[in-house]
Write a protein that binds this DNA or RNA. Structure first.
Length: 218
DNA sequence: AACGCGTTCAACCGCAGGAGA
DNA sequence: TTCTCCTGCGGTTGAACGCGT
């Protein structure tokens, strides 16, 4: 059982790294629980997998992030939000953990992005030619008190459909929104704002159109 | 030198989902 | 269908480090 104290935790030693690398070099990766046992490591399978993926794998690039990498991460985060594995998949040699850490410790600070969220409640007149979004903005620190409100006419904007469960909508040229179709909430990926819609309708592309509106008060 | 405090990042945790028996 | 095992993900933790006093 992985969760009990029979496994060693904490930083890996050079000896452990060597044992894991030697084993993978001969037998290949995958089936991490078995690797841990067969290699004689007192580590859980998850720990071995993480150590390989984030540190030991020859495909992992070490050292500081270049300006090009940072620029790419910022643009991908605008588009995808905190979907680190997707972002890392588009930054050669970088892992999701590296990207996440670099974002949280450097980029989010540099860009002045705060951790807290602001909730935007939305009601829409669906399928009219000029749908209207009625918005009330709440701060997370005091959700009871709306900090501002607006009533804006929408304009149709570009819609990017990534997949069924995670649709990405372009809000303006710089603001993107991710859709979670389970709870009808929308996330502003680059400003940590969430947008709650009162109801969900099908098909998705019509819904997306109905929720497209210009919001310049962020 | 010693201490306190903030920052960094490797590693852990809990959970979800897929595969296969 | 159910169960187990494995993998992958994002959020969180805490040891190590750096810096100021």
């Amino acid at each position: 059982m992985e969760g009990r104290n029979e496994y060693k935790k904490g930083l890996w030693t050079e000896e452990e790294d060597r044992i894991l690398m030697d084993y993978i070099r001969v037998h290949g990766k995958g089936k991490w629980n078995r690797i841990a046992k067969m290699a004689g490591l007192k580590r859980g399978g998850k720990s071995c997998r993480l150590r390989w993926i984030n540190y030991l794998s020859p495909s992992v690039k070490r050292g500081g992030f270049s300006e090009e990498e940072e620029d790419l991460i910022i643009r991908l985060h605008n588009l995808l939000g905190n979907r680190w594995s997707l972002i890392a998949g588009r930054v050669p040699g970088r892992t999701d953990n590296q990207v996440k850490n670099h974002w949280n410790t450097h980029l989010s600070k540099r860009l002045g992005i705060k951790k807290g969220k602001t909730k935007v409640s939305v009601s829409t007149h669906l399928f009219s030619r000029e749908p209207v979004a009625n918005c009330i903005v709440h701060s997370e620190s005091n959700p009871e008190i709306p900090t501002s409100s607006c009533n804006r006419k929408s304009t149709a904007l570009e819609t990017i459909m990534e997949d069924k469960s995670h649709s990405v909508f372009s809000f303006t040229s710089t603001q993107e929104v991710m859709m979670d179709d389970n709870n009808s909430s929308y996330w502003f990926s680059n400003s940590d704002l969430s947008l709650y819609a009162p109801y969900l309708v099908e098909p998705l592309d019509e819904y997306a159109h109905a929720l497209d509106f210009v919001w310049d008060g962020l």
